[in-house]
């Protein structure tokens, strides 16, 4: 990449896990794109917050449990992780129900961050 400026890429996670593959393949994309030394951030809004719910037990369903992998994002130097206050409240959740501690923001603050990105990737 040399002297080139980093691209600001934000993953916007809006879908719950397991009902569709988007949260899981979104996570795979975060992990791989995270290795390219760009400016990556991840925000969980709407049903996306369910991907971070503690105590997911997917054994009875027979699918892969991946919520714990979100906890490993830090090891990949992905530390800009956010969530939306109202999305949590609407779903009867607090940040203590989540497997990681994303920074809780107001919608207006998230909107401002989205505006600052060069690339927004929906999952």
């Amino acid at each position: 990449m040399g002297e080139k400026e980093k691209t600001k890429i934000m993953f916007v996670m809006r879908k719950p896990p397991h009902g569709s593959i988007y949260a899981y393949e979104g996570l795979e994309a975060i992990l791989i794109m995270g290795a390219y030394e760009q400016e990556i951030s991840v925000v969980f809004i709407d049903d996306g917050v369910f991907a971070l719910k503690r105590e997911q037990d997917t054994k009875p369903l027979g699918v892969k449990e991946f919520s714990k992998t979100f906890a490993a994002l830090e090891d990949y130097d992905i530390t800009n992780i956010y969530t939306d206050k109202e999305s949590l409240e609407t779903r009867g959740l607090t940040v203590d129900d989540l497997i990681i501690k994303p920074k809780v923001l107001e919608a207006s603050e998230i909107a401002k961050m989205m505006e600052e990105q060069q690339v927004l990737l929906p999952f």
Partner: peptide
């Protein structure tokens, strides 16, 4: 190819 290509496209 891999997701690296999506990264390249994004950049």
């Amino acid at each position: 190819s891999g997701l690296g290509q999506l990264t390249e496209i994004a950049i």
